[in-house]
């Protein structure tokens, strides 16, 4: 493990020192594309098993310190040993950079935004036994870009999502699995950790 970390650090440092890697901060109008991997934790009264997912996003920067991220991702997780859940998010966040320092390699930020979620619970041994629902959420978090060149960065971020919508309550009694859609508004918590790679492809204004 230590060897892998050393190799990764070597690659990173070599890349940083090998060329003019100091990025501009005046990226107003910058448009970038990115791919992301996500780890998610859900709390529906109690913490469920961690989810793992893949997604993509684009960023459109409004000013030197304000960026926006428009994303879609798809995560899957186990429901104990009798079912599984799939979360699909489509949303957007505003990013505010904490530092106005010129040409930073590390750019920390806070973010806040909104998203829609499509959630589906499915029984393991009978995929025709499922329940689904749409919900809306608000999210906030923090993260940082690691700007390796003027155009390329990888980013780490953590965000908390508060979902507002009906709940699906799974149960498994005596080997019989059922999913119940509750009525009225419900709340559940979602914590997401993202690793993404991004490339600025255009300067729109």
């Amino acid at each position: 493990m230590r060897t892998i970390l050393m190799i990764a650090a070597f690659f990173f440092l070599h890349s940083v020192s090998a060329q003019d890697l100091l990025p501009q901060t005046d990226f107003s109008g910058g448009f970038s594309l990115g791919a992301r991997s996500s780890i998610g934790l859900v709390n529906d009264g109690k913490w469920q098993k961690p989810a793992f997912g893949t997604g993509g996003h684009f960023r459109l920067q409004f000013s030197e310190r304000v960026n926006s991220e428009w994303f879609a991702d798809h995560l899957k997780a186990d429901l104990s040993n009798y079912g599984w859940r799939a979360d699909t998010h489509i949303g957007w966040s505003l990013i505010y950079y904490l530092s106005s320092r010129k040409k930073p390699i590390i750019m920390p930020y806070v973010l806040a935004g909104h998203c829609f979620e499509y959630l589906k619970f499915t029984e393991n041994i009978n995929s025709s036994n499922y329940a689904e629902r749409w919900s809306a959420s608000v999210q906030g978090g923090l993260g940082t870009h690691f700007n390796l060149t003027d155009h390329f960065d990888f980013s780490l971020g953590i965000q908390y999502m508060l979902h507002l919508g009906t709940k699906i309550v799974p149960s498994n009694n005596n080997g019989i699995t059922s999913f119940t859609n509750t009525k009225g508004a419900g709340i559940h918590d979602h914590v997401l950790l993202h690793l993404s790679i991004n490339y600025k492809i255009a300067d729109l204004w």
């Binding site: 190799i7 990764a8 690659f11 990173f12 070599h14 090998a18 791919a35 893949t54 690793l195 790679i197």
Partner: peptide
């Protein structure tokens, strides 16, 4: 899979490392 790679080119040789999210 789709992702990005960092390269260390040296003459005809090129060492690289990358990460790729995917399905």
């Amino acid at each position: 899979l789709f992702g990005a790679f960092l390269h260390i080119p040296n003459g005809k040789s090129d060492f690289s490392a990358g990460v790729q999210p995917g399905f």
